[in-house]
């Protein structure tokens, strides 16, 4: 019998059973499948059982007593999906986000997500309200989505089953690629880029990897149901992934004060989330105080915002911005002269 068919038969049998079903009975019911040597039959059933558990089938083995015989039994109440009583609004949020993530093509656990959406929609009736939300995630270059999507799927499986992965990684800081063995702890999305955080065996510490820079990827296939590592209790993805360029951990944190005027003054909270904002008395100006662990990341961003963004202090940050601006100005200076003379 086909394995899919056999497992579905087992589901039907166990859902209907009023009494525990012993291994001997199962062998009688499926003589062609669980025939042969005891060992081979048991191994086959073990694999089927594992699949059932994966599917969320609450299968247990009960030791019999006076009232009951030994055997396998399923907790029916724990099997069937109950109504979650999601409100229209709650359903809309889950659907909007879930379907946008699926449509982006680049989200880890896509199969899981698709099934989850179907299940929560099961009780919701015919037409689910799907607000139109579209997201482009994870691929820095057009045409990369398929590759990133496949990597995310592999990494999601490896994270979930806690198996190490081996990959070749192309860091822009070094030419070529390096071979890495990594214990994958989790995946984070920041500003449209997916990052893997994990323990790198080569560097002997926690490292972050951009998923689009992973060239080849292989997960450890030995003993798939036995985890290779433990994730430390206090591990948190958020502590290792930067939201903004100035949050990369390249040096000791430094407090920088920015002076935002003009159109930037009212946009301060959107531009520098998490910064302490303080409107200046004369109006139209906002001071933003923020912690910076990669100064160049901040000064580049400030430079791109234009003259309405000025570094107030400390002096090291002020001079770094001046230096950068002067460098750009000098490199383009001749254009200005041309223009003036023209």
């Amino acid at each position: 019998m086909d394995r899919t068919e056999r497992i579905l038969d087992l589901v039907a049998l166990l859902l209907d059973a009023r009494e525990p079903i012993s291994w001997a009975e199962l062998r009688e019911h499926f003589p062609a499948d669980y025939g042969g040597s005891d060992d081979a039959a048991e191994r086959k059933f073990e694999r089927d059982k594992a699949e059932l558990v994966e599917l969320g089938f609450p299968l247990t083995y009960v030791q019999g007593d006076d009232e009951r015989r030994d055997g396998y039994i399923v907790d029916r109440d724990a099997y069937y999906l109950p109504e979650a009583d999601l409100s229209k609004e709650e359903l809309a949020v889950l659907y909007a986000a879930g379907s946008a993530a699926l449509a982006s093509g680049v989200f880890p656990g896509r199969d899981d997500l698709a099934h989850a959406l179907r299940k929560i929609g099961f009780f919701a009736g015919e037409s689910l309200p799907t607000p139109r939300v579209r997201m482009e995630l994870g691929a820095t270059q057009a045409g990369q989505e398929k590759e990133v999507s496949a990597r995310l799927e592999q990494l999601w499986d490896a994270c979930a089953s806690r198996k190490w992965v081996e990959m070749s990684y192309a860091s822009p800081k070094h030419p070529g690629t390096t071979q890495r063995k990594v214990d994958p702890y989790g995946l984070a999305l920041r500003r449209g880029v997916w990052t893997l955080v994990g323990y790198c065996h080569l560097r002997g510490g926690l490292r972050t990897f951009h998923v689009h820079r992973v060239r080849e990827l292989k997960a450890n296939t030995a003993r798939p149901r036995t985890p290779d590592f433990q994730v430390p209790e206090d591990f948190s993805l958020d502590n290792h992934v930067a939201y903004f360029p100035w949050q990369h951990r390249f040096h000791e944190p430094l407090e920088v004060v920015l002076r935002l005027s003009g159109a930037l003054a009212s946009r301060a909270s959107g531009l520098f989330p998490g910064a302490v904002l303080e409107p200046v008395a004369e109006g139209g100006v906002t001071l933003a105080r923020l912690k910076v662990s990669f100064l160049d990341g901040l000064t580049r961003f400030c430079l791109s915002l234009g003259a309405d963004c000025v570094v107030e202090g400390p002096e090291s940050a002020r001079s770094r911005l001046r230096e950068m601006a002067a460098r750009v100005a000098n490199r383009h200076a001749d254009a200005l002269e041309d223009k003036v003379s023209a």
Binding site: G109, D112, A116
Partner: peptide
Amino acid sequence: PPRLTAGEAAAL
């Protein structure tokens, strides 16, 4: 249908 699995719920 079966209840959501841990992976399905986590992805959602």
